[in-house]
Design a protein around this nucleic acid. Structure first.
Lengths: 236, 236
DNA sequence: ACAAAAGTGTTTAATATACACCCATGA
DNA sequence: TCATGGGTGTATATTAAACACTTTTGT
């Protein structure tokens, strides 16, 4: 049994991926019983803090346990400590069963992470009772996790404003101009002109065109691009 | 005696004001004894969380107790929970005396507030064993409070980028163009061209020129301006 | 008269926006 | 040959940046 720092402080992770047309958030399944019998719903991956770890370490641990990946940059974005964030009876019962102790209030420090939603990540769906849910289709989650996701999206948008390289963390290594544009449109919340967007890409030295093109598509094959982080870091 | 939610979660406030040429941060004095005898140093105003209050409420309470002002917008910007943020022996002894209990770790949720450093605020210096210290002259503080201030300044800079009205919260009701420019230079960390700055002001409908001018200065008297929040809110 | 800060325009460069048609490919 | 999405250029408007001298006031 791991020693906890205490049972008042937790972290939750909003892990975001991009499937080519939608942003998706990684949720874990939760089940229990309440006055209406058994229920199944979902929550953000999270954990209480262990005795010997920092907040950031706890967030990395949760992400690593769930996805197997290490070294994913996690960013703390907000702490939620409303006294009625555990107002829902179902949540209280679930917590006290999980912790086998009376729980008064849990303050949670929320992190977001940006990952490439590749085949390995997709496989989580079965293996870990986790699921990649499009952010537009997230149902009612445990605790205030819907609020946490909403705030995460705001923070991600702000972050992208002053660090464009985050967009490329969401894309596969090779991507088309229209994938990049679709993603940018989702993040900025508005449509972007195709020609102006191509112009902009061509002025970004760190978005390098490849010779490789799409295959087997029923239309003109799109060129692939890659993101060159070295050039990005030196070019500003 | 007030009931605490627990002794693991606190809030700290980075309260910032502008004296016309420097940003200043509000610090409170701390004294105690360590192996070298008595010491006096400073810390950020802060508090553990009470049983019946949210994080934001705790921050407002601390600010109100110290300054007497209510309704100052406080903004949560980061949570500090490194396990060695209470690494310093002096801090541990001080905490355990203050709380009369063993303390393992305290996670603190940090807020910043922006206030007008007017005469009433200045008077705090004596009355409350508090002091307005220029951010460039802050010595070594308790805990990780130097780090917290540094992060607060980063957050304020980011905030000002997408909400210019914050600048005007730091200025007196009537201010000159050069006060506004000096403040903007401090926040942005670079000098601004005087002519371009005047041009920009004149294009901001919410910065309204007054007929009143400086008096008794040994040079051409500067015009005063005021900030009109109504116009600001409707003009974008 | 002088010291000290206030105030004032123009030119140029960079960036953002609007807009319509042809191209390549598989079915 | 048709349906589908890929790819391209020019003109205009907006915003940012560079730059030097005159004005007002108290001492």
């Amino acid at each position: 049994m791991v020693r906890l720092a205490n049972n008042h402080i937790s972290i939750d992770c909003v892990v975001l991926g991009f499937d080519g047309s939608n942003l998706r958030v990684l949720l874990v399944k939760r089940s229990g019983k309440d006055e209406n019998g058994e229920y199944n719903d979902m929550k953000l991956p999270g954990s209480l803090i262990y005795q010997d770890e920092d907040l950031d370490e706890a967030a990395m641990r949760v992400l690593h346990e769930l996805t197997g990946v290490k070294d994913v940059p996690l960013q703390q974005f907000k702490t939620f400590g409303s006294k009625d964030r555990t107002r829902n009876l179902r949540d209280i019962v679930w917590l006290e069963r999980a912790q086998q102790a009376h729980v008064e209030r849990i303050v949670t420090v929320a992190y977001f992470a940006i990952v490439k939603l590749d085949a390995a990540m997709q496989r989580l769906v079965n293996r870990e009772s986790a699921e990649w849910v499009p952010v537009g289709e997230v149902g009612t989650l445990a605790f205030d996790h819907n609020l946490i996701i909403a705030e995460a999206l705001k923070s991600v948008r702000r972050e992208v404003e002053n660090n464009r390289s985050i967009l490329f963390d969401l894309l596969p290594k090779k991507f088309t101009a229209s994938q990049l544009r679709t993603l940018a449109e989702i993040i900025h919340g508005k449509e972007l002109d195709v020609r102006n967007f191509h112009k902009k890409i061509s002025q970004m030295p760190y978005v390098v065109p490849l010779e490789e093109r799409q295959k087997g598509v029923a239309h003109r094959a799109a060129r692939y691009f890659k993101f060159d982080r070295k050039i990005y870091n030196t070019s500003r």
